[in-house]
């Protein structure tokens, strides 16, 4: 269908606030001397591609908007405010200002219900957007000139089980793809997730002291590499198969569902993904990864 929507690309878009802090944008109050360049430069490559595509919307699924009753969609046309990270307030105090694609939110809501899932529209104009959503979106598009749609992470993977949770995320992904198709959107997806998630609980004096920035342990690193290798080679089926074990062994944040949601929405692509960069943040493993579907669609 010529006028039907299309998913242009999906990004694994980790959200440590350290990345914004290291960049020193005017929107963020604290100042740094840099740090985490391998991830920030990786994001810069994605920014350029997104700019060139001129998408209608960026959708982001964030583990730091965790909801108990169903899957929620931001449904307020304009959201702005100060976001102070509850865990890292010393490095993230950010003025956000975003336009929400509410028509797409409505479509996602309807399609999610059709999958038999509980869906909700977040319509409170005073709602404070979570920092996971904000950091991933800033890193992908710091100009904020593309409308967005924020999706909550339903806590079913934690409340029930990994299996039930991931099943729900697959359904949510299918629903999202149908909503994009029927609204005719050219969309970019972002799974706001870190990989291995064991971390240090004390920070160095200079937060951006890269001399102190190492993976929490080598087993975490090896798990991250195994997962990234499967992404790079397009072995999505194998990736999905080892994901539960990865979640368990590496306390991987992908358990919250963003990656599964995104891969499902893209139809579990076997296109090799591009790993733009990998680095640690307080010991956790983070990768910026891109699945470019524009060639496939053309």
């Amino acid at each position: 269908m010529a006028d039907s929507g299309q998913i242009l690309a999906g990004f694994l878009a980790p959200h440590p606030p350290h990345l914004v802090y290291g960049e020193n944008p005017v929107r963020n109050e604290p100042r740094s001397t840099g740090g985490w360049e391998m991830l920030r430069w990786a994001y810069e490559k994605c920014r350029a591609k997104i700019k060139a595509w001129k998408p209608d919307v960026i959708l982001v699924h964030s583990p730091h908007w965790m909801t108990i009753v169903g899957h929620h969609f931001l449904r307020v046309p304009h959201l702005a405010g100060l976001s102070v990270d509850p865990i890292f307030p010393h490095i993230f105090r950010y003025q956000y200002d975003m336009n929400v694609d509410v028509e797409l939110a409505d479509a996602c809501f309807e399609e999610t219900q059709k999958e038999g899932l509980v869906a909700k529209k977040m319509t409170n104009p005073h709602f404070r957007v979570d920092y996971g959503t904000i950091v991933s979106l800033h890193m992908l598009n710091p100009e904020w000139d593309i409308p967005i749609l924020g999706i909550s992470a339903n806590n079913s993977p934690y409340f029930y089980s990994t299996e039930i949770g991931q099943e729900q995320m697959v359904k949510l992904g299918r629903a999202t793809a149908r909503a994009i198709a029927k609204t005719g959107r050219r969309a970019v997806l972002a799974a706001s997730n870190t990989l291995s998630h064991l971390h240090y609980d004390r920070e160095p004096e200079l937060i951006e002291d890269m001399n102190k920035e190492v993976i929490f342990n080598n087993s975490q690193y090896q798990w991250d590499m195994r997962v990234l290798e499967l992404m790079r080679s397009g072995h999505t089926e194998q990736l999905m198969a080892i994901m539960p074990e990865f979640m368990e062994k590496a306390a991987a944040e992908v358990k919250s569902g963003g990656l599964t949601w995104m891969l499902a929405a893209m139809g579990f692509p076997t296109t090799p993904a591009q790993v733009h960069g990998y680095w640690t943040v307080i010991g956790t493993g983070n990768a910026v990864v891109e699945w470019d579907l524009t060639h496939k669609a053309a």
Partner: peptide
């Protein structure tokens, strides 16, 4: 919830408007 140890609020006068992330319809 804190992750990096235990936190203590020491701002003398926190002001603002809070909305719960789950139950945003229960009021501001």
């Amino acid at each position: 919830i804190s992750v990096l140890g235990h936190s203590f609020q020491t701002h003398p006068n926190p002001q603002g408007l809070h909305v719960d992330e789950n139950w945003y319809e229960m009021g501001d």
